[in-house]
Design a protein around this nucleic acid. Sequence first.
RNA 1: GGGCGACUAGCUCAGUUGGUUAGAGCGCUCCCCUCACACGGGAGAGGUCAAAGGUUCAAGUCCUUUGUCGCCCA
Length: 901
Amino acid sequence: MAREIAKTYEPQQIEPHWAEFWVREQLFRADPNAPGPVFSIVIPPPNVTGSLHIGHMLDHTEIDILTRWHRMRGYNTLYLPGMDHAGISTQRVVVRELAEQGIDYRTLGREEFVRRVWKWKEESGGQITRQMKQIGESCDWSRERFTLSPELSRVVRLVFVQLYNEGLIYRAHYMTNWCPVCLTVLSDLEVLHEERHGHLWYVRYPVVGTQEWVVVATTRPETMLGDTAVAVNPEDERYRHLVGKRVLLPLMEREIPILADDMVDREFGTGVVKITPAHDPNDFEVGRRHRLPEIDVMTDNGHMSAAAGTYAGLDRFEARKKIVEDLKARGLLEKVTEHTHAVGLCERSRTIVEPRASTQWFCKMKPLAEPAIAAVERGEIQIVPENRRQEYFNWMRNIRDWTLSRQLWWGHRIPAWYCEDCKHVNVAVEDPSKCVKCGSTKLKQDSDVLDTWFSSALWPFSTLGWPEDTSDFRRYYPTSLLITGYDILFFWVARMIMLGLHFTHKVPFRAVYLHSLVRTAGGEKMSKSKGTGLDPVALNQEYGTDAMRFCLASMAAPGTDIVLSEDRLASARNFANKIWNASRFVFGNLEKVDLGGVSLEELAAPEIPAKAPYAAGGRVSLIDGWLFSRLAATISLVNEALQNYRFHEAAQGVYQFFWGDFCDWYIEWVKPELQSAEKARAVAAWRNLFAALDAALRLLHPFMPFITEELWHQLPQRAGTKSIALDVFPEARTDWKNDEALDQFSLIQDVIKELRNIRAEMKLEPKKKVAAEFSSSDEQARRAMESSREGILRLAALLELKVSADRLPQSGGAVRSTALFDVRIAYVAESIDVEAEEARLRKQIEGLEKAIAAKEKQLADDTFRSRAPEKVVRGLEATLAEQTTELRKLRSRLEELKTAA
RNA sequence: GGGCGACUAGCUCAGUUGGUUAGAGCGCUCCCCUCACACGGGAGAGGUCAAAGGUUCAAGUCCUUUGUCGCCCA
């Protein structure tokens, strides 16, 4: 079979084929009836308006790594994909598109608008799912869900109605956050706080019936039009005489009372505050206590309302300017000071939200939060990293009621119908035809929809068929794990826990891994709108999806944010290329070798790796013992790391194994064996090589699915197995563990490195073969040299290696010493830079002296000896002995160098 | 105002329960286009772990304070 393999790995040539294959073959379809422990995970549903950004890429990489890893280890695995209807975002997108066509969405009417949004969804929405398929995520696409689908909408209604009947959902008039651009209220979480430089205006309010005035400080003068009182602290001596009197509200010429309330901070401004119950949360409370009227002076789009008198129709910030001017003109503005204060911004539109009293639907959170706190306390849900747990508790213990309603058209419409006759509120799962109280048919449904996060909060069970007792629900719920960014801990994770517990009486997931965010070099959160985001799709194109995945995984240390750099990405791409070329070497060489008709199947058939390592002549060679021991250690490390969400350790482990051990040492070492004239030796070498490559590919697969799938298909495959993704994850076999081989080969590596170091320092031509000597008093070390001489000669480019226990001559060559051995290359002395050699020795000696002194001091300390664990003391002693030997050797070498010179 | 995190090699970052000369990638220096790979191979240089105190036989790791930066909540 002819193998035409490109010299450089070209992911663009490989990825589309496998991405399509995985979807077409439905390889990742979950079967609730299949055996095995369960691993189930639901996707954090991305917005239907969204396209894949770097944050998703990280999220999905972590999810897919764990999913593939579990699947290969025999778990019954489900990775459920889907999307969120994203109320505000989607409505904004379609409204904007309509506006571009010159259509005001309001003129279309609700029904038509919603129809257009669905149409938009079908045509342009869900780009992200296409991208997920492109990047080969191992989802079960047959189970894709959408939060606004009929099935899930029904769950939303059931949940709403039950909570209403339980008294946990209620409708009330309260202070809310209003976005004048999105034209809806927002929950507290959807409001971002930002420090802004502003002013504090000091306004004189004349006291009625006197010549006095009180001075009121405000950051939002335009709201004064809605003042219905001014207030002072009851303890404040300065103003006690005024309580009960009235002031004339400037500009509006309205008389309002002066009252006393504890809420007033005597230190703020002048100690007199204006009370605007309709536009400030604190004032709202004061207004309630004192039964003050509320005057809403604004319209939905942030202009002044009719209640604002002559200012009606002005934009709120225009009104502010005009009011300040007018006050100044009337001599009522005492002063203006600079003032920094926090303003609330709408998360979506970034406009300043207006605190505004309105009637909305709310969800009572305290009763829901308590069991959710307890579940995490009891460890029924593990939160990783640990420090997020505290954040969760803090928020949950101070939780406030959730504003559920949104003044939008796109979303789950609130299932409440108002009777026009008896005013009864009918809340029902099915649309009612008449009022349950009076039987009137004049019913009008609430026009609002629910916060998008309400349906997301149900996601882990609504997607699995709840409330029906489906086989999916029984098998896959609670889900095993939730992976998402810590930025939506409150928005989403906490609410899922609360509602999951309330409705299913089970936790929605057993663990939450909150991963880092990807930031820009400046530390900011990456953002497409600010132009600071990296486009993962373009980068995947350039570097390959595997490289992107590997790069993110290798940087994803729990708890710290990631700053992605193209350097790092390039390094991951290089790794893919290394894998490609190592495989290319393996497959390419096979053809050139004459193994007397031994077929690929005989060398690499699926049952072959199971029995590796193979022995050529009675016993397994050192290099194979070493490599498979390293492999087992790496597999253990990867398992351990992934178990604990330590993706970076796992990734770095496989990198080190594949590149450092397998390529740099193993392949280089076995090259001659593969061509051995002794057929038995060659066959054993090939089998071991294939077994190692096969295991390495499977080990790498969760991280780099494309390249491993491609290469795996070039190996003989297990019968009935279509994909490496369905093959088994390599097992850390205990019989592979071989400490003796590890030690011995490590010694050989050291010897080769020391010899290479001499060569480099002596500036020997790389190809120039020279004679070398090895000396050690340790017999085992000498034997190791004898038995691995061939390999050492080749990798250090030596003519010969003389092994002895004799002390090596110091002149006429260069020597390197370690505690265990000395090596020497005899070569004409003129190429040795004596000065440089001396400097090198001095530096090394200095370092050793420091280390030795520190150890001697410690060991001389009786308290240390009595308190430190035995193991530590012994280790220290052993190292000290080694270092002392090494130091002695280096010193005498230095002396001899000097006398020779 | 409250809380959290970061500060380790020129750059970007690892370093789990305190324990033996602090690691990686990139960059840099030197040598090499050796028949898998120059997206490569080989050999190096480079760090008083932000600062100051403290606990301990032992601190990059624990505690306190300070500084700089960032994030979250109010």
